[in-house]
Design a protein around this nucleic acid. Structure first.
Length: 273
DNA sequence: AACAAGACCTGCATGC
DNA sequence: TGCATGCAGGTCTTGT
């Protein structure tokens, strides 16, 4: 999926389209996404005005003047893209929202791993899907103490631990490989085995990679585009991800690919210990 | 409690 | 050309 940088750039791109706009019409064209839509989904959104746009982990939160918040997760292949009312609908355009300005927001998701739900705005952090999620990596909530605490005794590879949204929010398969490369940590190491010094390197490595990707408009490999339809270009800056056998940017050793918990990991066997 | 594996889907690249 | 296989940015659910 879209990971944190892609969700963040999508959310930012939606600001001019949605903020202070009324949702004039909501059309649901799929039986369900990852989960069934909540009761009276379209009716509860219709007529409401968007008062805020935020991101939490990989969720986009669209706050409404009705006191409810539309929650969107893009899954693996989801896009939220601006369109115009006259444009022909495409296959996999599952939800279409017309604004009072004549623009459309379309949720397009071939694999339907994405989801939409509605939370109570004042209590959204207790929503089932958000309640257990760990600290935002780009906020002060991500501290050395926190990482040390949640990694202590963990017998899963650090690569796998960093994908666990309960321990730290927003990271996915691409940025975990990239962050571990910059922190010079071997992805196979068990999370509980990392020293304080290594954890201390890991935090800025994560933040640097996420910020660099946000600045590049995210990563566009297959499905992802920004809300404007533009591609991101962080894929041109990958150090290790999707670069199996290519030379490490620092030492020229071949980048290695392995599979952990069923997912590809990329790393430099010489630089990462 | 912790961890691994299965499940949910479509589309695309690859190899026979 | 057609078909089978494997792989893809995620994460909830089920099983050990």
């Amino acid at each position: 999926m879209p990971e944190l940088p892609e969700v963040e750039t999508t959310m930012r791109g939606l600001l001019p389209l949605l903020l202070n706009r009324q949702l004039a019409k909501v059309t649901v064209r799929a039986e369900k996404l990852r989960f069934p839509f909540p009761p009276r989904f379209a009716q509860r959104l219709t007529g409401a005005t968007v008062t805020s746009l935020n991101r939490r982990a990989k969720y986009i939160l669209i706050g409404l003047d009705s006191g409810e918040t539309l929650l969107v997760h893009l899954g693996m292949s989801g896009r939220l893209v601006k369109a115009h009312s006259g444009d022909p609908l495409n296959k996999h355009d599952h939800v279409v929202i017309d604004t009072d300005k004549g623009d459309q927001l379309r949720f397009h998701d071939p694999r339907r791993f994405g989801l939409m739900d509605i939370a109570i705005t004042n209590d959204y952090h207790n929503h089932k899907l958000l309640a257990a999620i760990g600290p935002e990596p780009l906020s002060d909530d991500l501290t050395l103490d926190h990482l040390a605490k949640v990694f202590a005794g963990k017998k899963v590879p650090v690569k796998v631990a960093l994908l666990d949204q309960r321990l730290i929010a927003g990271l996915g398969n691409i940025y975990v490989s990239e962050a571990l490369y910059y922190a010079r940590i071997d992805p196979v190491r068990l999370a509980g085995s990392l020293t304080k010094a290594e954890l201390k390197r890991l935090i800025p490595a994560i933040q640097q990679v996420l910020n660099a990707s946000i600045n590049a408009g995210g990563t566009s490999m297959r499905d992802y585009v920004q809300a404007t339809g533009e591609m991101g270009h962080f894929q041109n800056q990958f150090a290790v991800y999707d670069r199996a056998n290519a030379p490490c940017l620092k030492c020229r050793t071949g980048v290695q690919r392995l599979v952990q918990a069923g997912r590809a990991t990329f790393f430099c066997p010489k630089c990462q210990k």
